[in-house]
Design a protein around this nucleic acid. Structure first.
Ligand SMILES: [Mn+2]
Ligand SMILES: [Mn+2]
Ligand SMILES: [Mn+2]
Ligand SMILES: [Mn+2]
Lengths: 218, 218
DNA sequence: AATTATTTTTAGATTTGCCTAAAAATATAT
DNA sequence: ATATATTTTTAGGCAAATCTAAAAATAATT
């Protein structure tokens, strides 16, 4: 079953949106930067191919087959990001867009040889977990810094990789994966957070920032 | 100017066919494994984009812009082949098809970083020359073993990479790039050729084989 | 419960890339 | 030079993926 680039991208988007609840046509269209009518069209096609469970007006979810496609594509995406950063010396802010193209190269043998070449990494440069060849995801954080309480001691485990400027900002303030953080105070009027860093210095982070940083407890 | 995968593939085919004379719609359609009417359609579009010089019924040639696109795509194709063979340990018979997909990944920075990572190779695993970033091609052989005369002493410089079975055959008889060969005899009834190898052994090659081996004089 | 607002789907077009069948142009043979 | 064969283009259609505008279904308000 040969899937088009568009179909794979829709499936990835449905997978991603599913993590935070039921998926509506509107949300999907927004995620795909297209119109709701286009999303409806695609959902009908994916439904006929049994990649999604789609009932008119009732939203959509991935079938088992669709889930496998999503995980396979995500695996490829993240492996290529590791390649670009670790082998080609790209910055972590430059690789997402290129990986969006590379993830659609078909050869399964390529994926497995690439994984081996990279030493079977379990996480990509942004801390995102890489599904193994069986489609199993390593444990990873789903808790954002924004959801934590004052006083908590945390480790930065992953960051959202979609926005290059956000990644450049993290680079600028030298906030790297693995760093230990402690929440000093939280301001309810704008949901900004003050954190204490490993070196004792203090940093103010906006709500937008804390919502895109994922942490685990120290 | 964003080109589609189909457009890039047509341009590559026109480039390749141009090496051996004027390019007709029929030849192009055959090379693209499609119908003449489809080729005509595409030639009109490429003509409007000024990538080819196309006059109805008069055949086609690449414009300067088209030539640059062809060389850029060929550069990417051959660099990826080097990557697949040298870094991922693919066999030389497995890489052409995968490179046909990878060559369409857009990022120019990726191409240059990849070239650097590979040590700026000048030839791909099949001996095909890799255009540099300015689009200049290294000197390479255009003379096939089939065109040579009895008694000539030659070096195998490159082989056609399109047919995996042909490459597996060369592997089987351990005929590798760089090997020194001497033509012992030629048979006009079927254009087969007997060659003497470096180790003194003798090998019989069919016309199909000799037409796909490119040599330089020793 | 009825009205209003929002979401979702349908209807009808458009573009790219391909197809078949027919017409037109060019090349070859008598 | 005329007839025949071949090549090339045109005409008309189809599928994928998108769009806008309108209709239908669902959700939210009064
Ligand atoms: Mn990414
Ligand atoms: Mn990532
Ligand atoms: Mn090749
Ligand atoms: Mn090659």
């Amino acid at each position: 079953m040969e899937l088009s680039v568009a179909e794979e991208n829709y499936i990835k988007a449905i997978y991603s949106l599913s993590q935070s609840g039921k998926v509506s046509t509107n949300d999907l269209a927004q995620a795909m930067q297209t119109k709701a009518s286009s999303a409806t069209d695609m959902l009908k096609r994916l439904g006929e191919k049994a990649l999604v469970n789609y009932v008119k007006y009732q939203g959509v979810s991935l079938s088992d087959a669709g889930n496998r496609v999503a995980l396979k594509t995500i695996r490829k995406h993240r492996l290529w990001e590791v390649f670009l950063v670790n082998k080609l010396q790209f910055g972590w802010d430059e690789v997402h867009e290129i990986a969006e193209e590379l993830e659609h190269v078909r050869s399964a043998k390529l994926t497995e040889k690439l994984a081996e070449f990279l030493g079977d990494p379990r996480f990509d440069p942004h801390g995102d977990p890489i599904p193994n060849s069986a489609g199993e995801l390593p444990k990873h954080s789903v808790k954002t810094l924004g959801e934590c309480k004052t006083g908590e001691q945390l480790i930065l485990q992953r960051v959202n990789d979609g926005n290059p400027e956000f990644l450049q900002y993290l680079e600028r303030i030298a906030l790297h994966l693995g760093e230990k953080l402690k929440i000093k105070s939280q301001y309810t009027f704008d949901n900004s957070v003050e954190i204490e860093r490993q070196d004792g210095s203090v940093l103010m982070l906006s709500e937008t920032v804390t919502n895109n940083l994922y942490v685990i407890e120290q």
